[in-house]
């Protein structure tokens, strides 16, 4: 800290510099997480998040929380253990969703003309807020992983249902029944996304019949717990100061 001691001459100036630091670090963190998380989520969640006719009761519900709890867990590990800031999950998800909205609005709609009502992103915010609060109240990685991870999985589907429900109203189309979301996927031609690569309503949960969404959500929550642990450790490792050779702590 010798550099900062010589640079400031008063307490007021120190406070000001510290605040400037805050904004610079926040901006850097925000954009870096946005970039990394966005690429990660597109590669792992991909089409499940891109299109309404992929947002089903089984795989979307299962996949989206599992692959999206990653960066929140890692950023939490850094911001909580080093700064006691319970915003790691929320800031990550806000960054991701802003990036997604830019992509969907500028590229999917602005460039390729898919209506926004077929390609809007999933809502991951309720789970992220709860994850942050649980870490703050419990001050425990294990508790956050177990309770928070489960909550993150469970909140996903109900948190998105108000947005997608109108698109699950059925229509009869030329003698076939489908949802409006299916019809969107059929109408708005995607040459590179033929029907058969759409992974929806597949799996072995048939015996649960209609109530497959809660079962999928629980399953997703359990896997999210494990992924949370894993990425929390990644976060801790990345937040080490060993990288800065002469300032090892």
């Amino acid at each position: 800290m010798s550099a900062s001691q010589s640079a400031v001459r008063s307490r007021a100036e120190a406070v000001q510099v510290s605040r400037t630091f805050d904004w610079m670090i926040l901006f850097t963190l925000f954009t870096a997480v946005l970039g990394g998380y966005h690429i990660h989520y597109m590669l792992t969640g991909g089409d499940w998040d891109f299109w309404t006719d992929w947002k089903d009761r089984r795989l979307w519900v299962t996949v989206a929380p599992i692959v999206s709890i990653t960066f929140p867990a890692a950023v939490q590990a850094c911001l909580w253990w080093r700064y006691r800031l319970p915003i790691g999950a929320t800031i990550s998800v806000v960054a991701l969703m802003i990036g997604e909205w830019i992509n969907r609005y500028m590229n999917f709609w602005g460039w390729t003309y898919f209506p926004v009502n077929i390609c809007f992103p999933s809502n991951l915010l309720p789970g992220a807020i709860v994850l942050d609060v649980i870490l703050m109240l419990g001050n425990s990685m294990t508790l956050t992983a177990v309770v928070g991870g489960l909550a993150y999985g469970l909140l996903f589907y109900p948190g998105n249902w108000p947005v997608i429900a109108p698109l699950h109203v059925p229509v009869e189309y030329n003698g076939m029944m489908m949802t409006l979301a299916d019809l969107q996927g059929y109408h708005y031609v995607r040459t590179g996304t033929p029907e058969y690569i759409r992974m929806v309503e597949k799996g072995t949960l048939r015996t649960f019949g209609k109530d497959v969404a809660p079962v999928s959500a629980f399953f997703s929550g359990f896997v999210s717990i494990i992924i949370y642990f894993l990425w929390h450790f990644f976060g801790r490792w990345f937040a080490k100061t060993d990288f800065i050779a002469d300032d090892a702590s």
Partner: peptide, 14 residues
């Protein structure tokens, strides 16, 4: 970081 962000946003267009 900003550059990474831009790249990420432009990364995918159908």
């Amino acid at each position: 970081a900003l550059l990474i962000t831009m790249t990420a946003a432009m990364f995918y267009a159908p």
